[in-house]
Simulated assay, not measured.
Amino acid sequence: MKVLLLEDDPELAPELAAGLRRHGFVVDQVGTCADADLQVAVSPYDCLVLDRRVPDGDGLALIEQWRARGIATPALVLTARAEVADRVDGFERGADDYLVKPFALAELVVRVRTLGLRVRESRPRVLRAAGLELDVARHRVTLDGVLLTLSAKEFAVLEVLLEHAGDVVRRGELVARCWDELSEPGSNVVDVLVGQLRRKLGSAELVETVRGVGYRLAAQPPVG
């Protein structure tokens, strides 16, 4: 899942971003409403996590603007305000969840994962092709019934390839869906990751390179 984190606290922001990444999320972290608005315009997200008070505005006001523009991505608000009236106001203005500071990282992870799954409700919860079966909710992959051990990044890339089994997935889409601002899109990170994935799948033929474009997952198991 890809998450946008709007938090300007110099200590809390990197701590939250690192914690979410440890739990398998792809995280873009920004410190202003202007940067958050730009990121939402150029990149798809499964969940938005926004602090209420940042230097150039209010994360809740930003959510309200997004809702008015038809952006329905689930949003969780981080705030020091614990009053019921504040939470009710947040829900009425478009927030999907509220987490009062201080909070435990474990609770944030569960809430973000739950909200992110809402984006995927219209997609199959289990993806199947070429002998592969990927269970999105259980974060589990099998090949011909054998359980595979994949890293979070390998799982994310395989999920995108399975969603488009038989069709070419451009490198840019893989980067947008599976990497955050810490990655270097111009480097060979995608090629290296696909190479690792092929080794774990035990077949180079399952994931085909379409030179100059991207990759394609076989819709059917390779013959022979």
Results as ranks from 00 to 15, higher is better:
L4F: 02
L6Y: 00
A13Q: 04
P14S: 08
L16K: 01
L20C: 11
R21P: 06
R22V: 07
G24C: 04
G24F: 01
G24A: 07
T32I: 06
C33F: 08
D35Y: 13
V40R: 02
S43K: 13
P44H: 08
R52C: 10
R52H: 10
P55W: 10
L60W: 03
L60F: 03
A61L: 14
E64L: 07
Q65G: 13
A68V: 11
P74D: 06
L78A: 04
R87Y: 04
V88A: 12
V88N: 09
V88R: 03
F91L: 15
E92Y: 10
E92F: 08
A95E: 03
D97T: 14
V100M: 04
V110I: 15
R113E: 04
R118L: 14
V119Q: 09
V126C: 07
L127Q: 02
R128W: 07
D135M: 06
V136A: 06
H139V: 03
L143E: 00
L143K: 04
G145T: 02
T149M: 09
L150F: 00
S151Q: 08
E159W: 02
V160L: 03
L161S: 02
G166H: 00
V168K: 01
E173S: 09
E181M: 09
L182H: 15
S183P: 05
E184M: 12
P185T: 09
D191F: 07
R199A: 13
K200D: 02
A204I: 14
A204H: 11
E205F: 03
E205P: 02
E205G: 07
G212A: 09
G214P: 04
Y215T: 00
R216Y: 08
A218S: 13
P221A: 12
P222D: 04
P222L: 01
V223F: 14
